[in-house]
């Protein structure tokens, strides 16, 4: 047996062996029951740039999520033409710090984008996020407006309410997707947190998703899967969300929440508004689909 023959045999045998392995559909609920407690990190401080590094430490730091050479997406909420102090958009320093951390962890590219509700250029400019990314001065950090050509129809196989939607290509073909929502009030879904922030990578008529918002967002969470969720609660908008506009509705609490479990992050953030996790329909729907933990007793909160 020469070397070539050996390699060929190994290849064929392993293909054959793989095909014979039976496949089981394991119920997500069963998996969830066996999982260890979800880890969630909490940090408070006024220096938002430094706060990001602190909140990531208990989770093993950015290097636990971004490996050298990774293509990374940092997805803030910059959906409205509002200034940072109005609390309707993710704080630019938080976004900037995450991008810098990802670059330091060796990311080959970091993309920042959001499909905005108000006019894109105005949102990018007035949220301060565009400037913050440009200031990093690293060609690997890219903030680009949404390119309509990049929306591709995606099957949502596990969807209970929606089974197909157009999703932004960059959000799908990346190695690490980091979700950076801002925590705020919302008329229909009561709060908008991590799962709702995923709407910013969707094409199509997003308004129609509101007709069954909780389940729709949970369905989307089966295909848009952040490795890391960092919820910006440095300022939280208590009323007139998701846009706000009146500083009186904004409360400064200097808090960041980070978790690898998107549902746990949302569930915990709900408590900042003095609500229970089950007040948010998308959290409940995502939990029941086994996408993460919402039982606060089963979430291990570490204060950094």
């Amino acid at each position: 047996m020469d070397r070539r023959q050996f390699i060929r045999d190994v290849f064929l045998w392993s293909v054959g062996a793989t095909l014979t392995i039976p496949r089981f559909n394991i119920l997500p609920e069963v998996l969830a029951a066996e999982k260890p407690r979800s880890l969630l990190s909490l940090a408070k401080g006024e220096d938002y740039f430094a706060l990001v590094a602190r909140v990531l430490t208990p989770l093993g730091g950015m290097k636990n999520f971004v490996r050298p050479g990774d293509r990374v997406v940092v997805k803030p909420n910059i959906g409205w033409d509002r200034s940072p102090e109005q609390g309707a958009t993710t704080h630019p320093l938080v976004v900037k710090a995450l991008v810098v951390q990802a670059l330091e962890a060796g990311a080959s590219k970091v993309f920042v984008f959001d499909r905005t509700c108000n006019e894109q250029r105005r949102c990018y400019a007035n949220s301060g996020v565009e400037k913050a990314i440009v200031e990093i001065g690293d060609s690997r950090a890219v903030i680009e407006h949404i390119d309509p050509r990049k929306f591709i129809p995606v099957d949502i196989a596990k969807g209970k309410s929606i089974t197909k939607w157009e999703i932004y290509k960059d959000a799908l073909d990346c190695d690490c997707y980091i979700n950076v929502p801002v925590a705020k009030h919302h008329g229909l879904s009561r709060l908008t947190l991590g799962l709702k922030n995923s709407m910013g990578v969707l094409g199509g008529n997003r308004g129609s998703l509101h007709q069954n918002i909780g389940q729709n967002l949970a369905d989307l969470a089966t295909v848009i899967r952040p490795k890391l969720t960092v919820i910006d609660a440095t300022r939280i908008l208590l009323r007139s969300g998701p846009q706000g506009g009146d500083i009186k509705d904004v409360k400064k609490i200097d808090t960041l929440i980070a978790s690898a479990d998107p549902v746990a992050a949302d569930a915990y953030a709900t408590t900042l508004f003095e609500l229970k996790p089950d007040a948010i329909a998308s959290t409940v729907a995502a939990y029941s689909m086994g996408l993460g933990e919402m039982d606060l007793a089963r979430i291990q909160v570490v204060t950094a």
């Binding site: 108000n118 918002i213 009146d246």
Partner: peptide
Amino acid sequence: CLPYAKGVPCIVCEEHCPTPDK
């Protein structure tokens, strides 16, 4: 209007209304 005519939740209009006091 969906909530009135069909009993379906919606209020996208409320979400987008830009005045600070909506």
